[in-house]
């Protein structure tokens, strides 16, 4: 049986169930790179182009982690996943960046995913991916259709089940299906906004989610907001937001502003993130104008010293508790 490696980075946090299921349905063993650790960070930073953001640099480290363990690495070129919307340009160049990095690579399963003009382009992309494994078109399409069901389930656990992505990934792999816990309304929530690959990578985010939970906050993210609400809220912008991830963040921010159980909002961005320099600014302006809840902006990069993040998180939580005490 051949093995296909998937880097535990970037869009792993959005599409892993889809990719894993697809390859498994074709009889392939899927291997994930290790969770981000010091070696992966060091290797990634050393190999990547200077100008890249930390998440892209980490991708190099995860590819290297897989390079000698698998027969092939899945390396999609994500241009667009929705009509008239785009993913950050760095993702478009990712396969080229990796190929010119000097890493001794196994076979690459490359595919162009661009649904900006035509939704049916996905079928063609699936066939191209499957071609690396089998020549049987019907088998490939069947594997794809089943994988799409898994992906929907994974998204459902987050959107309606109130599960954070890391738990959703776990629940999904354990095949417990639609386990929904739902959130308790009384617990004050802190909304975390940011790209999934920053928020849910425990190493990179310095485990912000657990730090907040330890302080007593319940964490809610943009992934917990149903798609229809995101569309509706993001449509309030005077100009359409064409960054897919940016749209989700803006839509979620507008939604959280209206919710009485959300007591504060934290936006986390990588140092040097292009789309976030605009999206973050928009969110911040709306937050300040609304004046209904505290807002904190955190920049993350290669730091391993946690003191700066801890100080800000603690002060932020103090502020929320202080306000709550006064309200009661």
């Amino acid at each position: 049986m051949i093995t296909v490696g998937i880097p535990r980075a970037l869009f792993y946090y959005y599409y892993f169930p889809l990719w894993k299921d697809f390859f498994q349905n074709l009889g392939v063993k899927v291997v994930l790179s290790s969770p981000t650790n010091k070696n992966i960070v060091n290797n990634g930073v050393a190999m990547a182009v200077d100008e890249a953001c930390l998440p892209v640099k980490l991708y190099y480290g995860h590819v290297l982690d897989l390079a000698d363990k698998v027969d092939a690495i899945f390396l999609p070129r994500l241009v667009s996943t929705a009509h008239k919307e785009f993913i950050c340009p760095k993702f478009m160049g990712l396969p080229d960046m990796i190929k010119s990095s000097g890493i001794k690579l196994p076979e690459l399963i490359e595919v162009n995913i661009d649904l900006s003009r035509n939704k049916r382009a996905m079928r063609k992309a699936a066939l191209e991916m499957g071609k690396h494994i089998t020549g049987n078109t019907i088998r490939i399409l069947k594997a794809w259709n089943l994988a799409v069901i898994s992906q929907r389930q994974f998204e459902h656990i987050q959107r309606s089940g109130g599960q954070l992505t890391p738990q959703a990934l776990e629940l999904w792999t354990e095949e417990t299906g639609n386990a929904t816990l739902g959130m308790q309304q009384e617990i004050p929530k802190v909304a975390l906004l940011g790209h999934g690959y920053n928020l849910y990578d425990r190493y990179v985010s310095m485990d912000i989610i657990h730090k907040l939970q330890k302080m007593g906050a319940e964490v809610i993210t943009a992934e917990n907001v149903p798609d229809s609400i995101i569309e509706e809220e993001a449509a309030r912008l005077p100009k359409r937001m064409f960054w897919t991830l940016g749209k989700r963040q803006i839509g979620a921010a507008f939604h959280f502003l209206k919710r009485p159980d959300v007591k504060g909002l934290i936006h986390i961005a990588s140092f040097g993130c292009g789309p976030d320099s605009l999206v973050g600014e928009l969110i911040e302006r709306h937050m300040r104008r609304a004046k209904t809840m505290p807002f904190l902006f955190l920049t993350i990069d290669e730091h391993t010293g946690q003191a700066g993040i801890v100080t800000r998180l603690e002060a932020f939580w103090d502020m929320i508790e202080w306000r709550n005490a006064q309200c009661q």
Partner: peptide, 10 residues
């Protein structure tokens, strides 16, 4: 009550 704060970053 503290309602907002900021600290220098890098």
């Amino acid at each position: 009550v503290a309602s907002d704060f900021a600290m220098n970053t890098v």
